[in-house]
Structure formats: C-alpha cells, structure tokens
Simulated assay, not measured.
Amino acid sequence: MIKNTGTARAAAGTAEVHPARISGVGRVLVAVYGVLALAATGRSFVQIVGRYSEAPVAYTLSALAAVVYIVATIALIRSGSGWYLVAWITISFEMLGVLVVGLLSIVDPQLFPDDTVWSVFGRGYLFIPLVLPILGLWWLAKHRPTRGATA
C-alpha cells in the first residue's frame, strides 16, 4: 500500500519534503509501467529460454527493456531525489532505446529477425513503448522533489 506521508505532514503543519508522485495520473503511469515490466519480462524469458539462438540480439534487447521497465516502475513509486534521478535516467534510456531500436528495425529489419519490445517503436505493444517515456518524462518534470529531499 502506498502512503502519502505528505498529507500527514501537512496536517501537522510541517513542510512536505517528499511530495507524492503517485497520485492521479501518476498511478496510471506506474500501473502501465508495471504491466509493461511484466509483459517484457515474460516475453524475454520465453524468447531467451526457447529460441535464443534464433535472434540473440533481439532477445537480449527485450530482456534489457524488461529491466529498464522494472527499475523505472520502482523509481516512480519511491520518493526522494535519488529515486527521482533513477527514474529520469531509466525513462530517458527507455526513450533512446525505443527511438534507436525502432528506427533500426525499420531501416534494416535483418538486424532483428524477431521483434523486440521496442521494434518498430513498440508496434507489438500498441506503440505504448513509444508514448510511455514521453508521458513519464513529462510527469517527472511536473513532479520534481522539493529541495532537500534525499530519501
């Protein structure tokens, strides 16, 4: 269960050090990241265990995407400037991965004999991998931790 400790501090009259990023649209964002983390993990596991020799680069990229989604989900849930930085790094990396792999998978399809999570900008996932980092970075920009938040 996620608690909004800022509400308790505000009621007590003290300053909120760690504003909750997990409210409203933030909850939806975290939920989508969580679902994508599970989907990418499952996909990469099946690909690597069952057919790794067919497309090792594609399947390794799917596993990398899964790790990125897992870390991004955790970083979005956690509060503090350290986790905020981790969220920025992982979501920025995700955006770069989607753009690079998406473009390469269109320009030179032989590089990826099988799809990755990020192939053709996330076509296999209804382009959610393309839209999600844009929304994630926007959300982070709107919900910066207050100065002095270190947890």
Rank of each mutant, 00 (worst) to 15 (best):
A66V: 04
M1H: 13
V35T: 11
S119M: 05
G124K: 04
L61Y: 05
A8M: 12
T60D: 02
G80D: 08
L104C: 07
L64K: 00
Y84M: 02
I77A: 06
F112Y: 15
P113F: 05
S44M: 09
A10N: 11
G50Q: 11
R9W: 10
L99P: 06
G102V: 05
L85K: 15
H143A: 04
A37I: 06
L135W: 10
V71D: 01
S81Y: 14
G122T: 05
S53M: 09
G24E: 08
M95D: 10
R123I: 08
R78A: 14
L64N: 00
L137E: 02
D108N: 15
L135K: 00
S23D: 13
I91G: 01
L64Y: 01
V32Y: 06
R43P: 01
W118M: 13
D108P: 03
P145Y: 03
H18W: 04
A40C: 14
S119E: 09
F127S: 02
A55F: 08
G102A: 05
G136Q: 04
V71H: 02
V32F: 04
Y33T: 03
S23I: 11
I70P: 02
S79Q: 13
A151Q: 10
P145F: 02
A15E: 15
A8E: 15
D114K: 12
L85Q: 14
A149F: 05
G102D: 07
D115F: 07
V117P: 01
Y125G: 00
A40W: 14
A151H: 10
G82W: 13
R43D: 11
Y125W: 12
W88D: 04
L36Y: 12
S53Q: 15
S53F: 11
D114M: 07
R123W: 13
Q110G: 01
A39F: 12
V67H: 00
R27N: 09
L61I: 11
V71C: 00
L137P: 01
G122F: 02
W118Q: 11
A87H: 09
L29C: 03
F45V: 15
Y69H: 11
L111R: 14
F93E: 10
I70G: 00
A40Y: 15
R147L: 02
L103G: 11
V35Q: 08
R78L: 12
H18F: 10
A37K: 06
L61E: 04
S62K: 01
A65Q: 00
G97W: 05
S92N: 04
P145K: 00
V86S: 04
A8Q: 14
L132P: 06
R123V: 09
L130M: 09
